[in-house]
Each structure stands twice: as C-alpha cells, then as structure tokens.
Design a protein around this nucleic acid. Structure first.
Length: 455
DNA sequence: CTAGGGTTAG
C-alpha cells in the first residue's frame, strides 16, 4: 500500500489499534523510522504504549532509545506494564529513571502505578520513599494516590502506617474504606476490620463487592456465621453481582463456619468458576469428611470445564481422600497428578499420602513411602506418621525411634512432640523413657503460635 | 492510561 505522508499519519493510529503481535508493531516501528515520523512524540508514545500490552521488554528498549525525552504518558505506560507483569523492581527502576532523566514531574497517574508495584512485592522501603515524594509533590490531594498508599501499607502489613494515612484522609470513598478493611484483615486483625466496616456504614458509604470480599474474609477468620449470613442476604437483597471473587469468599466463609451445604448452594449458583473456586469447594468437602462428594466434584470439573487442575487442587483432593479413608482413590489421584498432569509433588502432597496410608492403618506402607520420597520429611509428615504408629502400632522400634529423634531435633520447642514421643515409648514398653519425655512437656508450648494479634 | 478482593497437607 502506498500512502502520502499526511494520509499515513492519519492511518497510523488505526494501524496501532489493529496490531496485536510484537512483529506487527516492530513493522510499524520500521515504517515510522522510514518516514521520519518516529521523531514525532505522539507516534513514539503510541508505539510504546501499544508495545506495553504485548511485550514490556520491547517497550522498555524503545523508550530507552528514543532520540528525545519520552512523554510522561509513555513512562506511565511502562511503569504500569511492569507492575501488571509482577516485575515490581523493574517498575520502581523505571520510576527512578523517570525522576532522573524524564522531562517534567511524575503525575497522579504515575504514583498509583509505582505504588501498586511496591505493594505487590511488599517493598516497604521503596514504598516509603515514594510516599515521601507524594507528600513533597502535593499528590496527597489525589484520592487515587491516597487509596493506593493505604493499599501499600496494608500489603506490607504495617497497620499503623495504614491507620495514619486513613486517619489523615478528609474524604473517604468506598475504595478507602475497602482498603482499610483489607489492611486489617491482612494484618490479622479481623475484628478491627468489622469495626471499620460498622464505622463505614455510619458514614453512609455503601459497600460494594470488593468491600464484602474483605469483610467475608474477616468473618471467616472469626467464624462469625451470623454476620456471614447477613452479608449473604445483603448481597441477594441488593442484587450485588456474585462474581467469582465474591462467590469464592462466600464459599470460604461457609466452609470455615462448618456449613458445607450452604457452600454448595453458593457454588451451584455461581455462573463462572475458576480453579480457586473448585479448590475451595473440594477442600470444604475434605474438611468435613465428605470424600466421595469431593471426588465426584473433581471428576465433574475434569469433565465439564477446560480448567487444568494444579498443585493446590491436588493437595485438596488428596486431603479429601485421606480424611475419608479413600486409599485407592488417593493413590490414583497421586499418579494422575504425576503421570497425566506432569505436576511435581511437593511436601504437601507427600504429607497427604503419608496421612492417607497412616490413617488407614497401613503403617508399613506409609513408612515405605516416606523412605522412597525424594525429600526428607518435614515436621508435619513426621507427626502424622508417628500418630499413625501410636494408633495402629506395627512399625519396628528402631525405625520409629529414628523418626522420633528427627522430629525432636527439628522442632524441640513444641511440647506436643514430646507427648507423641512419650506415648510411642509407652507403646514399646519403655516406661522410664516415656516418663522422662513427659517431663519435658512442662514449660513448652503445646500448640503452635499462629501470630494472630486480634484486637 | 489510574486505586481495592478469594485458595492448598497437619
């Protein structure tokens, strides 16, 4: 095709819009070079922002080689693209380059992008630096910037900083409140999240689906079934769309509160489901001893959707099998995972298998499995196996003893391990040893510390 | 061209 220069510059924006591959865009770049239109900032910007959609790397190299200072729009596109590609360090690096070499200052698009990148990777130090620049540039006046700052401190689990930003806000919109609720949940303060929500209602701000996802998460942590149910009715009454996230959060809440039947009702009513949704529903069945239902749901997923099960889903289904004594099914899932889906088993999967065999009383098989695993068993697996030994006996004393020693060496601070060790010594009739081990329980924690500091 | 959300063994 032949274009006159003026008609060419008219057509180029459309060409950009139509290009959906890197080679096509590179061809366009060649065209710009040939026609000297590459010296027009408008086209350069368009090239960079189009490239950002497809290949951040290419976009970056074009920006670096521009013969004139790139537009702020181009810088912003690049930072955003890096943030969206989870390359937070690169996003921050581009932001620094913008400040050093760029023409003009960062604007109220730049800061949300770079802050989002910092939040994603919990880069608190970098985030604080950006916060300082935000203050200096007077950008706190922008609500997007303020809300992203709030999100940053929530993600970095520095709740006091989040509160500071939140308290200093004069105007709070639904995003500000949602971010604050989310920050409380992220910092293991679910009851705080609930209070913030109540305050939000008093301020006459209406929650949206994102707010409710965070709030439901707080309900799950607190097992507040009544509140969870009222959120569910709120959703139904207000015709809030049950999207994947909201539906998943609801199912999770019902799971945690022991109401799997309700989980299933929500699950069935959802239109779109992703892998997480299936995983959560299957693990709900797993936790409530409904192994058969879990297995049938797994098969249903394989048959009815194009989703490919992942490592987490296999953890869930293996756990379902082990809790319901479905030994053959569990073993079959394990080999399907390895042979059909080519997923490399990790500690969790081995743990499920040891648990599956151990609970079923197949102690020797469990021992054999542990010995044949390519990794050394962790505390969880050791405890699971030794509990099986305590219950079903029938492992040779010397083999059991070695694993007990391993457990006590790796986790000497947990009192529960000494209880287990003492019980096993009793099984083998070593009474004095059992007595000594029981003495060691004193002064040690019986449960793991979860690190929850609820207010 | 802008901000916020959910999962896995014991």
């Amino acid at each position: 095709m032949k274009y006159s220069l003026s008609s060419l510059s008219y057509h180029i924006p459309f060409l950009f819009q139509r290009s959906n591959s890197v080679p096509q865009l590179l061809q366009l770049q060649a065209l710009l070079l040939k026609t000297a239109l590459d010296h027009h900032q408008f086209f350069a910007t368009q090239l960079i922002s189009s490239l950002c959609r497809l290949s951040v790397r290419h976009a970056h190299s074009v920006l670096d080689r521009l013969p004139f200072p790139p537009s702020l729009f181009a810088w912003n596109s690049l930072i955003r693209a890096y943030a969206e590609a989870f390359q937070s360090t690169a996003a921050f690096q581009v932001f620094s380059n913008l400040r050093r070499f760029g023409a003009g200052e960062a604007d109220f698009f730049t800061y949300p992008f770079v802050l989002k990148a910092c939040a994603q990777s919990s880069m608190l130090g970098e985030g604080r630096v950006v916060h300082g620049l935000v203050v200096k540039a007077g950008m706190l006046a922008d609500s997007h910037v303020r809300n992203t700052l709030l999100h940053l401190y929530g993600s970095c689990r520095t709740i006091w900083c989040a509160w500071k930003v939140f308290d200093e806000m004069r105007e709070r919109d639904v995003v500000s409140w949602s971010c604050m609720i989310e920050a409380c949940v992220a910092c293991s303060q679910p009851s705080c999240a609930v209070s913030v929500f109540q305050e939000m209602r008093l301020s006459n701000i209406n929650p949206n689906s994102v707010t409710l996802v965070s709030l439901l998460s707080a309900c799950s942590h607190l097992t507040k079934l009544k509140m969870g149910r009222s959120i569910h009715s709120f959703i139904l009454l207000n015709n809030i769309k049950l999207d994947i996230s909201l539906g998943t959060a609801l199912i999770l809440m019902y799971n945690k509160c022991g109401q799997v039947n309700d989980s299933l009702i929500v699950f069935s009513s959802m239109e779109g489901k992703n892998l997480q949704t299936w995983t959560i529903m299957i693990s709900g069945f797993a936790h409530h001893g409904k192994g058969k239902e879990a297995v049938s749901l797994f098969n249903q997923m394989e048959a009815a959707s194009s989703l490919k099960p992942d490592s987490l889903l296999f953890s869930a289904i293996l756990s379902a099998c082990s809790h319901s004594g479905l030994v053959a099914e569990g073993q079959s899932f394990f080999s399907t995972m390895v042979d059909v889906y080519r997923i490399k088993p990790v500690m969790e999967h081995y743990g499920c298998m040891v648990d599956l065999l151990g609970r079923a009383g197949l102690v020797e098989e469990a021992y054999k499995f542990i010995k044949e695993m390519p990794v050394s068993p962790n505390n969880v697996i050791l405890r699971s196996f030794l509990s099986a030994c305590r219950k079903h006996g029938s492992v040779s004393e010397s083999n059991g003893r070695k694993l007990v020693e391993q457990l006590l060496t790796e986790e000497p601070e947990l009192g529960a391990n000494y209880v287990l060790a003492a019980d096993l010594s009793s099984v083998f009739g070593r009474w004095s040893e059992a007595f000594k081990l029981r003495g060691a329980v004193k002064g040690r924690r019986l449960k793991k510390v979860t690190g929850c500091s609820w207010v």
